[in-house]
C-alpha cells in the first residue's frame, strides 16, 4: 500500500483537504484531483511554462512540485484570476490578451498569464526588454510572442 499523506491547501480562496500519494505532481493534483484544468501541462521538465501557478504569490512550475509540498500553502491558478467566476468579467490582463490577440490556441496562455500577473505586480511599468525577458521562460507555438508583449504593455498602461 503506497503512502497517502493528508494535505490542506488553499487554491483561489477555497480550502481543499485531500490525501495524496507523494509522487503526485502538483500539476496533476490541480487537474485531476481538483478538476482545475486551466493549468496546462506541456513538458513536465520545467521548460515550457504552461503549468505555471502562483505559490504564496510567486510564479512557479507546478510540474516540478509534489502536491505534498504545498500542504498549508496558498495557490492561485488561472481560474482564480477573473474577479467573479459567475460573471463573464475577465482580469485586466486577460482582457488585454483578448484585445491584442495574445493567444491563438490558448495552450500556453494560462502559464503566461500567471507569470505576467506576478511580474506586473512587482514591476507595474516594465520596459519591453523586461517583458521579453520574463516571458523567455514560456513557449508559445502560435503567436510569435509579439502580441503577448503587446497585451502586457496594454495591461501595464491601463493600470497606470
Amino acid at each position: 500500500m503506497s503512502q497517502q499523506i493528508p494535505i490542506s491547501v488553499n487554491v483561489n480562496g477555497t480550502l481543499y483537504e485531500r490525501a495524496v500519494e507523494p509522487r503526485l505532481l502538483l500539476s496533476d493534483f490541480l487537474r485531476h484531483e481538483l478538476e482545475l484544468t486551466g493549468t496546462h501541462v506541456g513538458c513536465e521538465h520545467g521548460v515550457c511554462g504552461a503549468c505555471t501557478v502562483l505559490l504564496d504569490g510567486d510564479a512557479v512550475r507546478s510540474c516540478l512540485l509534489f502536491a505534498v509540498q504545498v500542504d498549508g500553502h496558498g495557490l492561485v491558478t488561472v481560474e482564480g484570476l477573473a474577479p467573479d467566476a459567475s460573471s463573464d468579467r475577465l482580469h485586466p490582463l486577460q482582457e488585454a490578451f483578448r484585445e491584442a490577440h495574445g493567444l491563438q490556441c490558448g495552450f500556453c496562455t494560462p502559464g503566461f498569464l500567471m507569470t505576467l500577473v506576478a511580474f506586473l505586480e512587482e514591476n507595474p511599468h516594465p520596459s519591453e526588454r523586461e517583458i521579453r525577458e520574463v516571458i523567455s521562460g514560456h513557449l508559445c507555438r502560435c503567436t510569435g510572442y509579439q502580441s503577448i508583449v503587446e497585451a502586457t504593455k496594454i495591461a501595464a498602461r491601463r493600470s497606470a
Partner: peptide, 9 residues
Amino acid sequence: IGHPQIRNR
C-alpha cells in the same frame, strides 16, 4: 540562471 519562475524555487 534559468528564469524567475525557476529561481523562485
